[in-house]
């Protein structure tokens, strides 16, 4: 079970807003500081390790840029969305950031409430209201990647890429 404080965001949020172009050539530890710089300045400083993002439809639309890595590197514990752009979801899998689609989640949470996420049955509980929702099950192999640090550790273990310090 994963539990954390909820931050809320809306529908159709693009990766351009999470990883603005001027930061794309910067190292990942700088990239994470630019998340939502144009739309919610100062937010990254308020995020605590294990916090949970609850977002609307079509989250992560747009560019393939590695914005999921920035969310992971901010220490966020999980992303719960009405729906997630398929390419963004792939990046969540491959960078090892837990992300689940969960219809109704946006309505079920206010910012600042606490969420519990159960990966054995893919349910979500609002601790304050007691509302429980069913998420869209994540296929086993993909969940394993999300929880195991993504695809790079596997490629390293198989000798397909050279080892470097993680980022």
């Amino acid at each position: 079970m994963i539990a954390g404080r909820v931050w809320k965001f809306g529908d159709n949020i693009s990766t351009d807003l999470m990883l603005p172009r001027p930061f794309m050539l910067r190292p990942p530890e700088e990239q994470k500081l630019a998340v939502f710089a144009a739309t919610r300045p100062g937010w990254v400083a308020q995020v605590r390790s294990g916090d949970i993002m609850v977002v609307g439809r079509n989250f992560g639309t747009g560019s393939a840029r590695p914005a999921a890595r920035s969310l992971r590197n901010l220490g966020l514990g999980c992303l719960l969305a009405e729906s997630i752009n398929g390419l963004f979801f792939r990046n969540c899998v491959n960078f090892g950031f837990l992300a689940m689609e969960c219809p109704g989640v946006s309505e079920a949470f206010e910012e600042g409430q606490s969420a519990e996420v159960f990966l054995d049955d893919f349910t979500v509980l609002n601790r304050e209201t007691g509302v429980r929702l069913k998420g869209v099950p994540i296929p086993g192999a993909l969940l394993e990647l999300m929880q195991g640090g993504g695809v790079f550790p596997i490629l390293e273990a198989r000798g397909l890429i050279e080892r470097i310090p993680p980022h």
């Binding site: 398929g86 792939r90 990046n91 491959n94 790079f152 490629l155």
Partner: peptide
Amino acid sequence: GRGIGGPDMIYCITTGTTWFRVG
């Protein structure tokens, strides 16, 4: 044809395979 992001590209060139969720 599909965009798959940076890490998946490295998986694809080294293994020659990938996965898709059928929508």
